[in-house]
Simulated scan of single mutants.
Amino acid sequence: MILVFGSSGQVASELRALVPDAVFLGRDKVDLSREADLGPVIERYNPDGIINAAAYTAVDKAEEEEDLALIINAQRPREMARAAHKLGVPLVHISTDYVFDGGGEAAFLPDAATGPLGAYGRTKLRGEEAIQKEGANCAILRTSWVFSAHGANFLKTMLRLSETRDRLTIVADQVGGPTPAAAIADACVKVVRQLKNEPAKSGIYHFSGAPDVSWAQFAREIFYQAGRKVHVEDIPTSDFPTPARRPLNSRLDCRSLSVFGLDRPDWKAGVADTLTKLGVNS
């Protein structure tokens, strides 16, 4: 049995469809901001593997709530890793491109120097470090620009705006790989199952959609596939200030994930699948 932390988020929702026999611990069952220690909770379920699909992801709000983000993104993952190590079961933990400073144009390798620009990235990096210190059989999957038919994400925001707007200004100097949540869920399951028998594969990996594009290019493809006539005007990040700084370069080198038999997913196909799930036809 796989134990999943998270229930209603994008990846957790896709995991529900993929592994319906898994046990999902959402906020209604385990509040990661309040739980004293996850160890006894995990030991009670005695799982064969653990997937952490829960996180504090409010990037801008984290600038004001870094302590809370640190509890959810670092302290709780540490407890998951400690319990996983004690039980001798694998853990897959989802992390983010925000652990990097976004400099340059080359894709970041998993062992590249980190340098988060804001509170969210700092807390996610602390979570990675905490997990590794526990010595668990664990794979950390850094991903980027997640989208799906669930929750709030860029694709759904673009569709909503296109209902009342025929022109939009979209940032064009941030580049990364949009990633379907369904592909992340599939990767998590395949990785956790392989780690059970091949703990030597533990480590940090990157998993993002291909090809790399800007937010503006991503938006154009969404509108094209959805049949929405919206003109997208490219703007620099400086024209769209936010409380938290975003990395300009979110390209992730995903080649090492081939040890699990995984390739970068085609995000354009992911857009088509998501639009179908949302009942949006071009």
Rank of each mutant, 00 (worst) to 15 (best):
A12L: 05
L15T: 04
L15A: 02
L18S: 05
G26W: 15
D28K: 15
K29R: 14
V30I: 15
V30L: 12
L32K: 11
S33N: 12
R34D: 14
R44K: 00
Y45D: 04
N46M: 04
P47Q: 01
G49A: 03
G49K: 03
N52G: 08
D60I: 09
E63D: 04
E64C: 13
E64R: 14
E65W: 05
P77R: 03
E79D: 12
A84F: 03
K86V: 03
G88T: 00
L91C: 01
H93A: 01
G102D: 07
G102L: 05
G104C: 06
A107F: 07
P110D: 13
P110M: 15
D111A: 09
A113F: 10
T114H: 07
G115F: 04
G115K: 11
L117T: 10
G127E: 10
E128A: 15
I131Q: 02
G135V: 11
G135W: 09
C138N: 08
I140K: 07
L141Q: 08
R142Q: 11
R142M: 06
S144H: 09
W145L: 11
A152P: 06
N153L: 02
F154K: 11
K156A: 01
M158H: 08
R160N: 12
T164F: 15
I170T: 10
V175E: 14
G176E: 02
P178Y: 02
P178W: 01
T179E: 05
A183F: 02
I184N: 02
C188T: 09
V189T: 06
R193Y: 02
R193E: 10
R193N: 12
L195I: 08
E198F: 03
A200P: 01
Y205K: 02
P211K: 02
W215I: 13
E221G: 04
I222K: 04
Y224G: 01
Q225Y: 14
Q225G: 15
A226Y: 00
G227A: 10
G227I: 12
R228C: 06
V230E: 10
H231G: 09
V232C: 10
P236C: 12
S238E: 11
D239I: 05
P241E: 07
P241A: 09
A244N: 05
L252I: 09
C254R: 03
L257K: 01
L262E: 07
L262Q: 07
V271Q: 04
G279K: 10
S282V: 03
